[in-house]
Design a protein around this nucleic acid. Structure first.
Lengths: 243, 243
DNA sequence: CGCATCGTTGATGGGGATCAATAGCTGTGG
DNA sequence: CCACAGCTATTGATCCCCATCAACGATGCG
């Protein structure tokens, strides 16, 4: 909309450039996208299951997460999203939501109309390809989570989640040694892993007792990366970080 | 490659046209895609985890499925694919496989080089959008499976799988009343649902005793659709069949 | 028709659910 | 600045769904 709103999309540019080289035209076109910036307080739904979306949302600060609520009242957390990501990029081509997107604690986000994004992708097929690729990595992470929930023990699942989040932070240069912020309640972790809150608590203690991690004040510290990755059965290939 | 190979892609055309209208140019370009047809015997891997793909695969007859093998030896089945689908469409933009694709029993498939598909999508952004959309529906199904495995009981999970497969057949007009072919072993079902073979067997009997389904000779018959959908907590919205 | 795969059944055990109660933490308003 | 409310973390006791292991019957294929 204005000079300052252009700055908003720097994280997006940086993300795209980790896997492709943008031409000047492409970069300009992205920076000219209309962006509406918004502050969201904790647990605000950005868009709900069943609604029709007309825009996409870039996380600028804080975390967001996606989830489904079943008729039974149970909740499955589908993903966590950190700054620079577009959790609802899929809504460009599937505008009717099949799940909800919500802010974890406080969060700021930029909103870009679908129309502008669709024009961009029609004009620049390289950019279209890069965005498409992003949604494919999203799907790859879903496959890994499905595998995590379906085949691994609770302890292994939790270790795997920690490994993934640390790796994603590290790629963006947002890690601090072997430590990252982890603004998740045990309830949110439980619903992401398909186990109960009580069990998350016990399994977390098991990881602490093994001197693999510490977690206090929403800060995760990995004490033994190799050990953690081993019991997690973690292989970062599914994140498709380089190619 | 020749006149007959053009016919191969009719299922793909039909699939695309369920959600968009193709122009003559677009349709011609698709039918001119080079296709190499191949017969695959049961349990043949089409491409394996870690390999780099140079082509996509359209299922023409029979079923295919995708899976991951963990270091522990456990297997998670990620998806089942029926004629007309392109299980590895994602490999266009993520050529390094993070899982394997294999034939379930006998199967025929058409292979299209990535290069030809990439040219097609660069030239025709409407077609690119439709293919992109297909991969997004794929991801939506992963989300639902994750929810299925993470939150539902074994009985509910199995019922949900039956509901999904029936619905996908019905859309393609391949169902026969309330019956579809189901060429899956109980081992494959077990690995898709994250339960053991023995338990699949028992849960299947429970569904039979409730007069919800029968399954013999690889033919599934749904006796009570409403009842099945109810215990499955099934809502077809995630399949994005119309919009 | 012999052998391998697949389906079925039973006995037993365990990982994690469930239920319940306590303690710590955070924000908020009087 | 404290007191209260409400959420979050922690812990214990008990239970059950499903895993595990083992055996046997059915089926289909070479």
């Amino acid at each position: 909309m204005n000079a300052s709103s252009n700055q908003e999309l720097e994280p997006l540019i940086r993300k795209l450039e980790t896997t492709m080289t943008l031409t000047d035209d492409e970069r300009d076109a992205i920076l000219r996208l209309p962006v509406y910036r918004m502050s969201l307080s904790a647990h605000t739904d950005i868009i709900r299951d069943g609604e029709v979306s007309k825009q996409c949302c870039v996380i600028l600060t804080g975390w967001a997460f996606r989830y489904k609520i079943l008729k039974s009242g149970k909740r499955q957390v589908l993903s966590f999203h950190i700054p620079g990501e577009i959790p609802d990029l899929h809504s460009m081509h599937l505008p009717k939501m099949d799940h909800s997107l919500s802010a974890l604690r406080g969060c700021t986000a930029g909103f870009i109309p679908h129309e502008a994004l669709l024009n961009l992708t029609t004009q620049f097929s390289q950019v279209a390809g890069a965005l498409w690729r992003d949604t494919l990595i999203d799907a790859s992470i879903f496959r890994e989570w499905m595998t995590n929930i379906g085949q691994r023990s609770a302890k292994s699942r939790l270790a795997h989640l920690f490994c993934e989040l640390y790796t994603r932070f590290k790629v963006l240069g947002l890690e601090d040694g072997f430590s990252i912020p982890l603004p998740l309640s045990q309830a949110e972790i439980a619903d992401a892993l398909g186990i109960t809150i009580a069990h998350v608590n016990r399994v977390l203690q098991a990881l602490r007792i093994d001197s693999l991690v510490t977690l206090k004040g929403h800060q995760l510290v990995i004490l033994d990366w190799k050990g953690l990755a081993k019991i997690a059965d973690f292989d970062p290939d599914y994140l498709h970080l380089s190619e």
